[in-house]
Design a protein around this nucleic acid. Structure first.
Ligand SMILES: [Mn+2]
Ligand SMILES: [Mn+2]
Ligand SMILES: [Mn+2]
Ligand SMILES: [Mn+2]
Lengths: 230, 230
DNA sequence: TATAAAAGTTAGGCACATCTAACAAATTGT
DNA sequence: ACAATTTGTTAGATGTGCCTAACTTTTATA
């Protein structure tokens, strides 16, 4: 049985490695910064996780998840995203409110609870941020999400998710009436700064900066718009 | 902000005091036994709770909850019972399975979560064991529950709850097809050992020992059966 | 009332998760 | 290649929650 803290270290390692499409390894300082603790603290924990055969790490070397550690990390990600979905779908939480509560709920120990919750939610594949929810065997559903910034003029897109979860960004989207599963047409892209002008049923004119468009994940609804979708 | 452990001490004190209709005070050994820790451990915690003005306690004296401590304890009881209701009503947990998971869930910190959960469950007044759920101001709903053993021959009763939560007892009830809100007629009470013979639609002949009848809480559906109901 | 039993306290210690401060190794840049 | 910077490690300390063992106070009982 892992402690609350050990679980958070595994999950942090998993996220650091997924969000790094180069080598799946992390450093002590990097992990410390991510978790908001000091490198010395991480070092103590590395010893414990190594003893439990969840990671590999040798002195002055890089940290890697072992298969057992990755499996546990994915279980925690699964719980986190199922709880986020529950809060959003069933309890009417806002987009930006679900994460912090899920940070607590993800540590509840009860396999039955998670299976029942999954069933209650109808076995969802994606959470309210559009992130994939691993199934009970740890398989991640695939989606052809791509940043909105890759779309071209004339594209008809649907919002599948976001790649940043900050309250600031999520509120910015809400304020601009951009929500999960909303559909938009890319009307115009300003050449100089690539600001996008979108239209939707609810709102005929929405301006989205390139910075924001990079964080908004969409899929293209037409195959003939030339946006480079496979 | 209280720790997980501090919350459990407050809740334990509350339960010890409610379940004792004499003086609302508890002893060190009593509390230690209830929580499954050693008296020395309790002593350390008493110091902390006293510093936080949640209890009163002087050397070799009895422990009492202060108003602030009682209020916090009731909040935890509220969370516990709402979660039990959620697990039972929405996730199809069995009677005896809800408690252990609720022991974990009761410590999740999010006022919004609890208010939303309460609304989602339609502001229930009683949990799956028939125990009262305090409202958000800490008021306990009243019910005229009384042990089944107080009923007399001819009484028509409905099961409102149980005063013991062990898996053994709850499974005993399930095995005998006795469930929450089920209705029974008291057909016969054996004079010598007060064993009760009940009948219901599902099952025309159920034998209930006096030991069990003491733990089953009912309300009488007729006013003329002479069972002493007010 | 004296003694035995029960209840409560204290001292000292341990595991966990964290810190600071000092140090060592590896990497980078001139 | 050497120095400077970054990265990682170690030692020693703290607070929480728990323990055992020894002690003291209160309560029960002979
Ligand atoms: Mn977490
Ligand atoms: Mn998410
Ligand atoms: Mn608890
Ligand atoms: Mn209950």
């Amino acid at each position: 049985m892992l402690s609350y803290t050990e679980e958070n270290y595994l999950k942090a390692l998993y996220h650091l490695m997924v969000e790094k499409d180069t080598k799946p390894e992390a450093g002590t300082n990097e992990l410390a910064a991510y978790l908001g603790v000091k490198p010395a603290t991480v070092n103590d924990m590395l010893k414990k996780l190594k003893d439990k055969k969840l990671i590999t790490h040798e002195r002055y070397g890089k940290i890697r998840l072992q298969t057992s550690g990755r499996k546990l990390a994915i279980e925690i990600v699964r719980k986190h995203r199922l709880w986020e979905t529950f809060l959003y779908e069933k309890l009417d939480f806002n987009w930006h409110e679900v994460h912090d509560v899920a940070e607590q709920l993800e540590h509840i120990q009860s396999p039955k609870l998670i299976e029942k919750l999954d069933a209650f939610l109808n076995y969802p594949s994606f959470d309210p941020h559009g992130d994939p929810i691993p199934d009970k065997d740890g398989n991640m559903p695939k989606s052809q999400r791509r940043p909105l910034s890759k779309s071209v003029e004339g594209c008809r897109v649907v919002i599948l998710g976001v790649s940043e979860h900050s309250e600031l960004f999520l509120n910015y989207l809400s304020d601009n009436h951009i929500g999960l599963n909303d559909k938009f047409t890319v009307e115009r892209i300003t050449p100089f700064d690539e600001t996008m002008r979108l239209s939707s049923k609810k709102n005929p004119d929405i301006l989205v900066s390139n910075k924001a468009a990079n964080k908004i994940q969409v899929t293209c609804l037409r195959s003939d718009c030339g946006c480079g979708k496979m």
